[in-house]
Structure formats: C-alpha cells, structure tokens
Write a protein that binds this DNA or RNA. Structure first.
Length: 547
RNA sequence: AGCGAGGUAGGGUAGCCUGGAGUGCCCGCCGGGCUCAUAACCCGGAGAUCGGAGGUCCAAAUCCUCCUCUCGCUACCA
C-alpha cells in the first residue's frame, strides 16, 4: 500500500487564524485525511506553526519577549484551537526545532553542492537607531505620487501604487518611528530557480494532472512562461536558523525557505525513525492543502528546493489550493467584515457546526460568499432540518415500532438511488471534490426523508399486527431508513466527528468509522431515547457573531 | 500596468477541461400533500436572452477572439 502524506499550509505563529485561513487549508486537509483513515490508508496528516520571520521578531520585541518565546506561546494557542475544532493531526509541530534545522541544513548543503546557490547583492533600507535592515513594509512615509502620509515601502494603500523604499519621501522606521534611515548594500544567498526551471516545469506538467485546481496549474505555468529568477533564501536578521557559513554569520534563512522544508522537519519531529520512510518512499503521495495565495511557494519554490537538493524526497502529487471565502465579495480578513476569529466562533457554536458549514461552502472552484445569514441557513435548514431531523424521526419511529424492526438493509426498490449517492460520495473524495462529498451526504438524507413521506409508515403500523404482509413491508422500510441513518453516521465522520459518534452509538458502534463498515451488518439499540443531533441557531448566537 | 480567477433565475452555487434541448443543488417565492419527526419533511410550479459582441461548428454556458465588470496576486508579507 502506498503511503500518503497530507499537509496543510503552516499557519503563521503570529495570531489566531480566522475562518478564511481555516477553510483554506487545515479544515479540508483534516476532512480529507479523516476520509483516508476511513478507507484504511497509510496516511499521515502533518501541519505546524511557521515561527520565523520579521513580523514575529518585531511583535516579540514590542511585547518584551524573546522571538522564540512569543512564537512558542502562539504556537500552543493555535495548536489548541485546531484541536478544539477536532482536527486530528498525526502531528502538529513547529518550524523552530532542531529537527527542522537539521533538514534545512541538509537540504541547503545539497543545494550548494549541486550548484544551485548563488550570492546576490542589493541595497536595503537600514535603520541606524534600531541597527537593523528593514523589510519594505516597515518603512513608512509620504507617497511620491498621491502624497498620502501613510505609504509603506512596498505599496501605498491610498493610491494602490507599488513602491520601492527609496521612493518614499521622508521615510520613517515603523519600529522606532524615527527617520534615521540609510540605504546600505547587503548580500544574500539565493536559489537558482532559473537553472532549475526545466525540471520544475516538467514537474508541473506531469503532476498537475492529479486534480490540481485550475488556478494552481495556470498560475504556475504563467510564472514559468515569464521565466523564473533566482530567489533569496537568506535575510540579514537575527531570528531564524543561522546560515552555516562564516561569510553569512549575520544572516538567517528566510522564513519561506524553512517553512516549506518544515513539512519534512515536522514529520521528523513527529517520529525520528519513520519520517524518512514517508518522505523518501517512491510511491508516497504528497497531498498539500493551501489557500491560493500560497500556490507559487508550493508549485515553484518548494519543488525547486527538492529537485535541486536531489535527496530523494517526494514532490507534491496533488496541490489542492482553495479560492477565498469572501464577505460582500471581498477577501476575508480580520480587519473587515464580521468577527471571525476561530477562537471566538467556537464560543458561539460547537466545532461540528463550523466544520459542516465551512465545508458546505468550501471555495473549491471559485471564491465563495460567506455570511452570518448563510451560516444560519446551513445550520438551521441543512444540518438541523434535513440531516438531524431525519435521524430523529427514523429513530423515534423505530422505537415506537420496535417489533417491526428486523434486518437493517436497503430495500431493493431504493437500492439503485442509494448506491448512486454512496458511489458519488466516494468518487467526490477520490477526485478531491470535498464540498461535493458533503452535498452527496445531504442528498442521502433527502432520500431518507423522501422515503418516509412516500411510504407513510405511520399509517399502516396498526394494521401490521394482523396483516403479515404489511408487517413485512414495514420491516423493509424501517430497515432501509435505519440503514440510511447508519450510513450517514459513517459518512458524516470526516466532517462532523461528534455527530457521527452520536448517531453511531445507536447502532452499538464505538470504533472509528471505516468505509468497510458501510457494508457490514449492524444492530440498532432502540432502548435509549435519541437526543437531538443538532439545534438551530438562536438569535443570541447570531447577535454574538455580529458583535 | 502585467498575470491569475470569476461573472449561470431574487440571493448563493455546480456544470465548462472532454460541445449535444438551460441540466442540477441550497435558500427565498407560489401552490399542494403529510402530521412519524426538532412548526420539521415530501411533491409540484413560477422565475435565466448562462456579463456583452463577434467567430468556429449540424450543434456553444462549454472551444476561439475582442470588450466589460468584480476579486486576487505581482517575487522584501508569510
């Protein structure tokens, strides 16, 4: 059996991710990984906190903390939030570890030996007060075009023009707010993506056949068409992994470099022995989830690093990039729209609700609109009325007619419709259509609801005691409805593990669900009164989100 | 400006790669059924010149060209 590594883009250890970040990578990766687990695959799910980079260093400084302490503090918070959303990583690690450092050094050495590292020289803004180089957006001043006072070194938010730091009039350092800035020459190391271009191009050509979204394929190809350039992998700063060369003793590896390598480093952190068998096995499938803003890192730079190092690490098989969740057609972000910090959301609704609602609108093929109204619609009408209520009516009906419940299986009459839906659910997952898989599940619930309405079992239950034929027919109907409920209990597991557990305990199942269980014979426990699976959103919950 | 993605009933989407009657889904609206279930469920209906214009084709939402609008990215944000 081939091994599968599922990864989600590493969240930056700076703040708690918002719903948009979550739905873009960690959530679908977790759902997909859970499905693989159900299928009995040898699949590991790796993620972790990205801990280096200037923003973290500065933030730590402001809080009078060491960058490492701040990054670790955030790391634990982020990890805990994901866990409370029932994400079951094989391992959730971080990038600032000895293990990751070892892998980074090993890869860097190999890149150097293979001739893919080159020295670059550039001029960079330097704050004489803070005694450090400044990244472009830490320079603030007057825009040379529109004269706005709040232009940054990379861009002016007022007029939208792209800028370079030297263009800014009266530049100030964002850290100390002083304007004692000079421009100094600095040297860096870069990876020669230009030399690696033919192989990267070949990789994209070949692997993009594995269900890459349109955006991932086209964006990558368009970069290739423009021609790749060497890209810096070091920075002149303190926080990060020191470059192991005397000449670069005052530089560290650039955060994006050790972040992508972090996928390997974190696996090594997980298991010092097994990590290699996953990353270097030739049949391993590497499935990577991310937002579309991360595409080029995963389709160009990351494969470039792996190909250049030539250490036998597997290349990404499937790049599963997501579009954006939007609010009034604009990209989700904390500064706009509703309060959608993951921590806060969990205070209002349990994780199953968010997992379901977010996957129901997972922006798989295009940006997807999300709003509190839509959330309420999904929770109230889909989760509660269609799915939850079906389970309730089936169980209550069966309890009221215990004597008529015989074999739990789909009646011939409904087999075709049923099989089609279950097959579609599996097919959706195989082709990475995760939202569709959830929609298929809802379709199965609708089938159950339709069967009840069509057959009206409550009408004939009285006749059943005297009429054997009626009794048999009712047994078939109850068997069908219970089978559907049981299957929903299994199929909903990747999306809503808690609801799954609640359904399956009525069928005397306490193990982790598997696809094999779909065709297994089960019994039903009709002694315990069923509890409502989901509840509708209340006005106060809605008000809580709007705040 | 360049590049990428998108524009499909009142709203939200799928279909587009691989052309075959506007085919599907959710909400909303109108009508009916049902009363097992959480005032839930089921059935039927109205509602779309598939952003616009041209082209290819027996046939275009789907392929090609141009235009237009929206969002995103543009390598020192990670």
């Amino acid at each position: 059996m081939s091994k599968i590594i599922v990864t989600a883009a590493l969240p930056y250890s700076y703040s708690i991710p918002h719903l948009g970040n979550f739905v873009g990578s960690v959530l679908p990766a977790d759902v997909y990984h859970k499905y693989l687990v159900m299928g009995g695959e040898d699949a590991i799910f790796i993620c972790g906190s990205d801990q280096h980079g200037t923003p973290i260093e500065i933030r730590a400084m402001e809080r009078h903390q060491k960058p490492e302490d701040f990054a670790n503090e955030m790391h634990l918070k982020i990890k805990s939030v994901f866990e409370r959303y029932d994400c079951t990583f094989t391992y959730y690690g971080k990038t600032h570890t000895d293990q990751n450092k070892e892998v980074v050094y090993e890869i860097f050495d190999a890149l150097q030996k293979n001739g893919y590292i080159v020295e670059t020289h550039s001029t960079q803004a330097y704050c004489n007060i803070d005694k450090r180089f400044l990244i472009d957006r830490f320079i603030e001043g007057t825009c040379p075009f529109c004269k706005s006072d709040h232009a940054r070194g990379d861009q002016c938010d007022n007029c939208g023009r792209l800028l370079t730091p030297s263009e800014i009039i009266n530049p100030k350092c964002k850290i100390c707010s002083k304007s004692d800035i000079s421009f100094k020459g600095t040297k860096n190391l870069a990876i020669k993506l230009d030399s690696l271009e033919p192989k990267i191009s070949e990789f994209i050509e070949l692997n993009s056949r594995n269900n890459w979204p349109k955006a991932a394929k086209n964006k990558s190809q368009s970069y290739i068409k423009e021609g790749l350039k060497p890209r810096d992998i070091t920075r002149n700063m303190d926080w990060g992994f020191k470059v192991p060369l005397e000449k670069f003793h005052d530089s560290v590896f650039y955060v994006w470099f050790d972040a992508v390598i972090g996928y390997i480093g974190i696996t090594k952190e997980w298991d010092g022995r097994k990590w290699k068998s996953y990353w270097t096995h030739k049949d391993t499938k590497l499935v990577q989830f991310m937002g579309k803003d991360n595409i080029e890192f995963h389709t160009l730079m990351w494969p470039g690093i792996l190909i250049g190092a030539n250490l036998g690490f597997v290349l990404p098989t499937t790049i599963k990039s997501a579009e954006y969740l939007t609010s009034n057609s604009e990209k989700f972000s904390k500064s706009r729209g509703i309060g959608l910090d993951l921590e806060k959301c969990l205070g209002i609704l349990p994780s199953d609700y968010w997992r379901f609602a977010l996957m129901y609108v997972y922006p798989e093929t295009s940006d997807s609109e999300f709003s509190i109204d839509l959330l309420r619609e999904i929770v109230n009408n889909i989760m509660n009325d269609k799915v939850g209520n079906l389970i309730q009516r089936v169980l209550k009906l069966s309890i009221a007619n215990k004597g008529l419940v015989k074999k739990i299986r789909i009646q011939n009459e409904y087999r075709e419709a049923h099989d089609k839906i279950v097959a579609k659910y599996k097919d959706d997952f195989s082709n990475f259509r995760l939202r569709e898989a959830l929609h298929s599940l809802v379709e199965l619930a609708t089938l159950g609801n339709t069967i009840i309405s069509e057959r009206k079992p409550w009408e004939s239950t009285k006749k059943a005691s005297s009429d054997g034929e009626v009794a048999n027919e009712l047994s078939d109907i109850f068997g069908t409805l219970l089978a559907i409920s049981y299957e929903i209990g299994i199929m909903i597991w990747p999306f809503c593990p808690n609801a799954s557990e609640n359904i399956l305990k009525h069928f005397n199942v306490s193990d982790t669900p598997s696809l094999k269980m779909l065709s297994m014979e089960v019994s039903v426990n009709l002694e315990d009164e069923p509890k409502q699976l989901f509840t509708k959103m209340t006005d106060s919950q809605i008000a809580g989100l709007q705040k």
